[in-house]
Amino acid sequence: MGADLSVASPLLSILETVLYARDLVATEEFYRRVLGLQPIAVVPGRHVFFRCGEQMLLIFNPEATRHPPRPGALPVPPHGMEGEGHVCFRVTADDLDVWRSKLPELGVEIEADFEWPKGGHSIYFRDPAGNCLELAEARIWGIS
């Protein structure tokens, strides 16, 4: 029998989101230059971590994270994926208007820009690794 989850505390939020990129130098530069995120931890060839509000955006090189940890290292199990991922950053409607202008000025193509049927707007673009990035109002999910 499994554990009785009815006594577990509710999940509070998502703490980490992970994307993968082989060229971490280009990826770090993109997130700094385009999104204004500052790395808080960098291990060349392995990962670059950014704080985004109260959450963390972790970008790993999939080749480096598919191996088990070395003896004495933190016991984080292997993980990684192939192909592009997706992350959506929460912004206000007013800030979304600013991003619509800023991204093309920075040479970033907006792939999609639309209003959701139940309200709220999203814009989509890509990072150097091909990950699909979205900027959206929280109301697309009924969150105020």
Rank of each mutant, 00 (worst) to 15 (best):
P117H: 12
C132R: 15
G45Q: 03
A93V: 07
H121F: 11
W99M: 02
E82N: 13
Y31S: 04
S144L: 09
G119N: 08
P117L: 13
E109F: 12
V108D: 06
S101E: 11
L135H: 02
V98T: 13
D4Y: 02
N131P: 06
A93I: 08
D23N: 13
G130D: 01
D94E: 15
V48E: 01
E82S: 09
E63I: 08
G36F: 08
D94Q: 14
G45H: 03
H47W: 09
T65R: 10
H79Q: 13
H47D: 02
R70W: 00
Q38P: 15
G72S: 09
I40E: 08
I123G: 06
S101T: 09
P10D: 12
P71T: 14
G53F: 07
Y20P: 03
S13C: 05
R33E: 12
G83C: 04
P104R: 09
E16H: 15
D94H: 14
S13G: 06
D95G: 12
S6C: 08
H79N: 14
S101Y: 05
R33S: 13
V34M: 03
A112N: 09
W99F: 11
L11H: 08
Y124V: 03
P44Y: 00
P78W: 00
L74V: 08
C132K: 14
L37S: 01
F125C: 05
E137M: 08
H79S: 14
A138N: 07
G130Y: 03
L11K: 09
R46I: 06
E84I: 05
P104I: 01
R22P: 01
P78H: 02
L133I: 04
A3G: 06
R32K: 09
R66T: 05
L103K: 11
K102Y: 00
F89E: 00
Q38M: 05
G107H: 15
E82A: 09
A41E: 12
E134Q: 07
P39W: 00
C88Y: 05
H121Y: 13
C52W: 08
L37K: 04
S101W: 10
L19Q: 00
P69D: 03
Y20W: 07
A129V: 01
E63W: 00
V87Q: 01
R100P: 04
E134D: 04
L133D: 01
V98E: 11
W116N: 14
R90E: 13
A138G: 13
E134R: 04
A73T: 03
L57P: 00
E54V: 11
Y20H: 06
R70Q: 14
I143R: 13
P128R: 01
G120Q: 04
D23E: 05
E29T: 14
A64Y: 06
L35M: 06
L11V: 12
S13H: 12
W141K: 15
S144C: 06
P71K: 14
L11W: 02
E16P: 03
P71V: 08
C52V: 13
V98S: 09
P77M: 15
W99A: 09
E82C: 03
R126T: 07
P10Y: 15
H47I: 00
G120P: 05
A112R: 14
I110N: 04
H67D: 02
E16N: 13
L74M: 10
